[in-house]
Amino acid sequence: MKTINIFTLKTVKFLYQYASIVIGVVLLIVSSVMMYFTKDITVVSNGLTSIDNAVFMPRVVFGALILLSPFHIVAGVRRIKTNISNGPSDEEFEEIANKTLRSLTALLLLIVYVWLVGKLGFIISAILYLFAAMMFMTKKENRKPILYVVVSAILVIIVYYCFKHYLYINLPNGILKGVF
């Protein structure tokens, strides 16, 4: 856990100091790659003009992003000194890193939930997600696990029932296929 914290701390510090440069470089690389892939877009021959085709707009959009990226890089280079001298203290960076870690954990919970919906079905994964997210978001001393389980289970079943019977939408059943 400590290694992750140090790694997060270093990443947060680096991103704070060089954010605009990183944004510019990432934009440049991603847009260039996308621009390269525009070659695979079929140009149908019935266009009335040379620019009336499906490649035109992607080239304009990714071209614009390629042109914008140097602005971010230059702005980032200009701000390096200010960012380093006026940046947060080590303690503040640690706090930012801890907050970021918590957000990433919440994101991980969500990703696992969506992945589980496809595997276990909506009912089980939504109950698990609600319980885990409620526990995670609430301070240890204020947690009410039994309430969370009851609320999660009742709510998920009501939602499932309403969608199935009133909206005619079958949410993924997963391993409960045939049960509900």
Binding site: V117, M137, L155
Partner: peptide
């Protein structure tokens, strides 16, 4: 802490 996960769950169902 309870409301936001519920909103995310309901929203995800709406999205689906």
């Amino acid at each position: 802490g309870m409301l936001l996960p519920i909103i995310v769950m309901l929203s995800s169902v709406g999205a689906y």
